[in-house]
């Protein structure tokens, strides 16, 4: 019943996210818990996809442990990252704004 793409790695039964063991390209469809999900933008290896719908304020569980709280409703199969998940401890620093402001594009290791 839990039909999942082979790239989806479940680290703990309690988790509400999967980890990608390989990248998913833009335009691909991927099966998450039997649901076919259309991928908008490329998502790299090691990133997280929602295993089920997650409500605002709900904890994200990975390794069976809370890794922060969701800031808005997340749909099944959606990329769970900086735009919808925040730390319950200290805020996360990224260069995304700096890159956007400087029109920088780079392919990384993912």
């Amino acid at each position: 019943m839990n039909d999942n793409d082979t790239r989806l790695l479940l680290l703990n039964e309690e988790d509400n996210v999967f980890v990608l063991r390989a990248a998913v390209e833009a335009g691909e469809t991927i099966t998450v818990a039997g649901v076919t999900v259309q991928i908008g933008e490329r998502i790299g290896m090691g990133h997280k996809l929602a295993r089920r719908a997650i409500q605002p304020g709900e904890k994200v569980l990975k390794y069976g442990a809370p890794i922060g709280s969701v800031t808005r409703a997340v749909a099944i199969g959606e990329h769970v990252h900086l735009n919808n998940l925040k730390s319950d401890y200290t805020q996360t620093h990224s260069l995304e704004e700096a890159r956007a402001a400087n029109d920088f594009v780079e392919g990384a290791n993912t």
Binding site: K48, I67, K86, T90, Q91, E96
Partner: peptide, 27 residues
């Protein structure tokens, strides 16, 4: 780290799919 205003978290961590310090910590 709260006093410093940053966690032990570099920009490349986020590019690689890590979103929060506690997620990085578990790893």
């Amino acid at each position: 780290y709260a006093t410093l205003g940053f966690g032990s978290f570099a920009a490349g961590n986020a590019d690689g799919g890590l979103t929060t310090i506690e997620e990085k910590s578990m790893g």
